[in-house]
Design a protein around this nucleic acid. Structure first.
Lengths: 333, 333
DNA sequence: CGTTAGCAGTCAGATGACAAGAGTGCTAAA
DNA sequence: TTTAGCACTCTTGTCATCTGACTGCTAACG
């Protein structure tokens, strides 16, 4: 589709633009990159690349800027994903090997490390427990009317939730509940805790509905809940020249400040692997000047959370993807 | 110290400046506010107010702008703290009456409500449990080597923490630990869980140190821990004209993005009541263009968290203080 | 036929001059 | 003590001009 020289030129333009954020000129390319063609030749190719919509031109007499299509081609065809140094690898390893008590802490560390290394804003959300199996479930009575349920999953997630009752609960009842739930649920998928389960316990075990119902409801909520959003490096945005403009910076902050939007961005169904969404490709217009790179941290089929990087379309895809790939590998241990 | 007319003029200037963010001129004052003096008279007073450092002048031929000292005088002497409408009161009531499972959720709601109503960025940190007494403490074994401690305080705080062991723990041991801790600690202040307590349990009750030590350590950490920072309305900053300047906006974001700084700001020892820190008064130079209004939510002597508002020095102190006062009253129920 | 030198044309951005407008400070009179 | 009036100051916006960085095109070259 594109001949070799055009590919090289496109690549050079994109990489140059990623670095400088300035429109790239033909003269610059022929000098700085050793393409061994005169600026005139490059100019001809640039004109064709522009005609084919890989490049844009801010105005008649300016250099070229990559278009969305250009970035997409670059990401799909030209991207090197081993753009990572030994030092960077070691640093990631070091960070991820910290002792943590809960999986969520690991997600937090990964998020901040990612932002630190890429210099972009990173965001993450904890995983729901829906894909996990129950390893242990315990109920604890706190005071007389407050019950806490603690669920340990085989993925190592710990979800706790509080259930409040209108009447006193006895220790005896707690023991019963503990026994019923463990007998029925241990080893089972958390997706199993639902209405039929509630009915089963109430009818088969003839246990009071007004106790079981709120428990099941709360546990279900806790399993599906992933409201904890981690955001790291919001201020990084100011390191990029394109955000010197008040409007773009404001726009960015508006996106970042809308928790529901972030939640949606990260939760939107995506399977394993790294997902890249460039400019216009994003499903929200607010993000049309941004690129989003996200990945689910899935360990042995169990979802642990979703992490993402958000930055200008002029993002250093190569660096970010390389770092994420390595990080994913490390997270699997 | 200041005669009546000067006070009125100072107040008018500050209130006008808070609204418009533009230097205030003598002509404007004599027209818009019914001071019944000519602009020349007002001009004379303004010159004196400037000489006494209550006002600044951006340049020779411009209107006046309040100085730090001016704001401080305004806040101390001229501020009306009942600047709140019935609708606003109702709205606060409505928000705070939502059913919540944990105190932290209440702090979260208060924070977002505050930001929403004042149009400034609000921030908060959960309280440590140090000022609380233990109402109940429970240990739950999750798997074989993971113990979870759940502490319920008389203030209604629930703190949970995870303790990992290198060797298996038996259910028998858990029962023992439960009994020992409840026997020794129920009703006592959480500040009591420390080294001496550890030694006491180990020597008097002759219980193994390698089990008790990590438990006490972790519990202590959990009591003192208040890492959860809530931030609401970061993007509000862009609603203020003074932050159209790239530098100030960037500066603001840098502050907001530094979790340690926020933690410090909110945790810095302050007793009951509303604390106002204006511009230069802030102990961090990064904040010299900002004002910070903070208050601890203390219910019956028990700390529940600290909430704050951060905005330009040109902040609507009257509105913010009025809202906070009412909110504090409501939070005490 | 692909490549290149050379040149005219285009446009953004910087610079400086200039006028308008908003305020002040000061003086003299009420 | 207050006020009208006027000269002076400084910011802001506008406009014209200039410079430099590119491109596109044409004609020549290997």
């Amino acid at each position: 589709m594109l001949d070799n020289r055009k590919k090289r030129i496109l690549q050079a333009i994109i990489e140059e633009y990623i670095q400088t954020a300035e429109p790239v000129s033909s003269g610059m390319l022929s000098k700085k990159y050793d393409l061994n063609f005169s600026s005139a030749t490059i100019r001809n190719d640039m004109a064709e690349l522009e005609y084919a919509n890989f490049l844009d031109k801010p105005h008649t007499s300016s250099g070229r800027v990559p278009s969305g299509k250009g970035y997409r081609y670059y990401v799909n065809e030209l991207l090197k994903d081993n753009n990572i140094t030994k030092e960077e690898m070691q640093y990631i390893k070091l960070k991820l090997e910290q002792k943590v008590n809960e999986i969520e802490d690991l997600t937090k560390i990964a998020t901040s490390t990612l932002s630190e290394m890429t210099h972009y804003t990173s965001l993450a959300i904890g995983g729901t427990a829906i894909s996990h199996n129950i390893e242990d479930i315990k109920f604890v009575l706190l005071g007389n009317r407050v019950l806490m349920a603690v669920i340990l999953t085989d993925g190592g997630l710990i979800k706790e939730t509080i259930i409040k009752f209108n009447a006193d609960i006895t220790e005896e009842q707690v023991r019963n509940i503990n026994q019923i739930f463990n007998a029925n649920l241990r080893g089972k998928s958390l997706a199993k805790i639902d209405k039929p389960m509630e009915e089963y316990i109430v009818s088969e075990m003839s246990y009071e509905l007004q106790i079981i119902k709120p428990i099941i409801e709360q546990i279900n909520e806790a399993i599906l809940q992933n409201d904890d959003i981690y955001l790291e490096g919001t201020n990084r945005i100011f390191e990029m020249p394109e955000f010197k403009s008040y409007e773009t910076a404001r726009n960015f902050l508006n996106v970042i400040d809308t928790k529901e939007l972030i939640k949606e961005l990260l939760n939107t169904g995506q399977d394993e692997g790294i997902h890249i969404s460039i400019g216009d490709e994003n499903q929200y217009i607010e993000l049309k000047n941004f690129s989003l790179i996200t990945f689910k941290n899935i360990v042995e089929g169990k979802e642990m959370g979703t992490i993402g990087i958000i930055g200008p379309t002029r993002m250093d895809y190569s660096k970010v993807v390389s770092i994420i790939k390595y990080m994913l590998k490390e997270l699997n241990e």
